[in-house]
Lab assay of single mutants.
Amino acid sequence: EPLWIRPDAPSRCTWQLGRPASESPHHHTAPAKSPKILPDILKKIGDTPMVRINKIGKKFGLKCELLAKCEFFNAGGSVKDRISLRMIEDAERDGTLKPGDTIIEPTSGNTGIGLALAAAVRGYRCIIVMPEKMSSEKVDVLRALGAEIVRTPTNARFDSPESHVGVAWRLKNEIPNSHILDQYRNASNPLAHYDTTADEILQQCDGKLDMLVASVGTGGTITGIARKLKEKCPGCRIIGVDPEGSILAEPEELNQTEQTTYEVEGIGYDFIPTVLDRTVVDKWFKSNDEEAFTFARMLIAQEGLLCGGSAGSTVAVAVKAAQELQEGQRCVVILPDSVRNYMTKFLSDRWMLQKGFLKEEDLTEKKPWWWHLRVQELGLSAPLTVLPTITCGHTIEILREKGFDQAPVVDEAGVILGMVTLGNMLSSLLAGKVQPSDQVGKVIYKQFKQIRLTDTLGRLSHILEMDHFALVVHEQIQYHSTGKSSQRQMVFGVVTAIDLLNFVAAQERDQK
């Protein structure tokens, strides 16, 4: 057995438009009618409502009807409940999964919650491996369901041993009777949507819809739904939504950006999952974080739909894509998950301010006199920076000697690579993860907040409520011999709460 199987392995699926269902090699399930009293909570997966979006479509000038398939009504709160249950049931049916076995899954959280929910009911041990950027709410729900959680670096490539995929496979090879159901490759993922989600949409719309818009992560949702719609409703256009920084969209030119990270969760990847059939997507749109969270908040405030950030991405694209539809036509959007997962993220004004998705003037509360002053007023001194090749031991000596707790790590040209902190280095040394002679590049981390000289002290204040420091950066445009230009970030300084307090105190003292 291989040590790991690539999540982007070539698909062996034989589905073709027009091929009889009787030739399918898979076990198919028909939607079942729910009894009045459910035998367990797993029976509350599927049969989610279709809700008309009344205000947002009109606000953006849509002539067509805009409908939302509300997947956050599933038992675990997301569309991923469907595939989690289906993968477990299919693994039980073919004898792969037996009582007492362990389920391991690399996930952005929602599939993990679905699997942990099913594992709690069915009696399996469950280990979820997820990147650090995923919300604390997801972690809390997983723990409450009895799952064990392993976190991995957000910026690790999918084929790196440190990625959530790599760590999951390492655990599988170490733990007896453990299984990775593997949402990236498992046919049960798109089949769950082909058999149930798509049929529900067709039934709820009486077979009449002209466009379907869905955000894409593993691709199982859009693949399964689109294949069924292509068979039953061939005139329906399928629109895929991919965040900026991901590479799922086609044509490839759409993916060209210097951005590699994004805040919206559960969609987009740096590889093409095996289950994603991009041939059934008629057109791709890219979405960005700001519009995703703005539209998610709009869905909550104006439509009462308590959905997550990827739902915002989907609707932001839908109001663009559906401009081509006329009166009497219908566009369906998939709202994948609930706001429950993001209470401390985009639902929080403070978080939105820190990330730059909300401006101070958007909030009406009274601010102190210094709130709208610029960061450049602080008069920061030149920063202490270190090269990635310097040793951890030497870096600790320098920081202690100069009285700093942290320093930016830059390359020879001064471009920011990340940050090192005294606390992080000492804990890594004590844990045996690094040696004093190791290069400081081994303990770089990139989960820090950046701020510009033109940003306000109010925004800085919000950042420092949650973080010990902020890195002050400025952009530099560099022209190359080819005539092309590129933008790079340079370090201007490091600012802490002490710097802000000293500035405010000094100004008030001078005024007296």
Rank of each mutant, 00 (worst) to 15 (best):
505 A>H: 06
495 V>Q: 08
477 I>F: 14
408 P>Y: 00
350 R>Q: 14
472 V>C: 09
412 E>A: 14
402 K>S: 12
324 E>Q: 15
405 D>P: 10
447 Q>C: 14
381 S>V: 13
445 Y>W: 04
420 V>K: 00
323 Q>C: 09
274 T>Q: 04
338 S>H: 05
383 P>L: 15
294 T>K: 05
450 Q>V: 08
406 Q>D: 02
380 L>P: 12
264 V>M: 11
413 A>Y: 12
388 P>R: 11
274 T>V: 04
305 L>K: 04
375 V>I: 13
455 D>H: 14
253 E>A: 11
491 V>R: 02
374 R>G: 12
269 Y>G: 01
424 N>K: 13
386 V>W: 04
498 I>E: 14
461 S>W: 08
295 F>W: 14
241 V>M: 07
338 S>T: 06
411 D>M: 09
443 V>H: 03
383 P>E: 08
500 L>S: 05
499 D>A: 05
437 S>C: 14
299 L>H: 04
496 T>M: 07
316 A>H: 14
510 D>L: 11
439 Q>I: 12
441 G>L: 14
253 E>N: 14
321 A>L: 13
393 G>R: 13
293 F>D: 00
491 V>C: 15
387 L>R: 15
452 R>A: 09
386 V>M: 11
395 T>M: 05
351 W>V: 00
250 E>K: 15
274 T>F: 00
511 Q>I: 11
297 R>Q: 05
390 I>Q: 12
266 G>D: 02
460 L>P: 05
309 G>T: 02
262 Y>A: 02
288 N>M: 06
425 M>Y: 09
485 S>R: 11
377 E>H: 06
238 I>Y: 02
452 R>F: 12
298 M>P: 09
425 M>V: 15
377 E>M: 10
434 V>E: 09
281 V>E: 07
351 W>M: 05
253 E>I: 14
399 L>G: 03
420 V>M: 12
481 S>R: 14
414 G>Y: 09
257 T>D: 13
382 A>M: 11
471 L>V: 14
417 L>K: 01
317 V>C: 10
286 K>G: 00
426 L>M: 14
310 S>N: 06
301 A>H: 08
300 I>W: 00
238 I>T: 08
510 D>G: 13
327 E>A: 11
332 V>D: 00
444 I>F: 02
510 D>Y: 11
459 R>G: 10
442 K>T: 13
434 V>N: 09
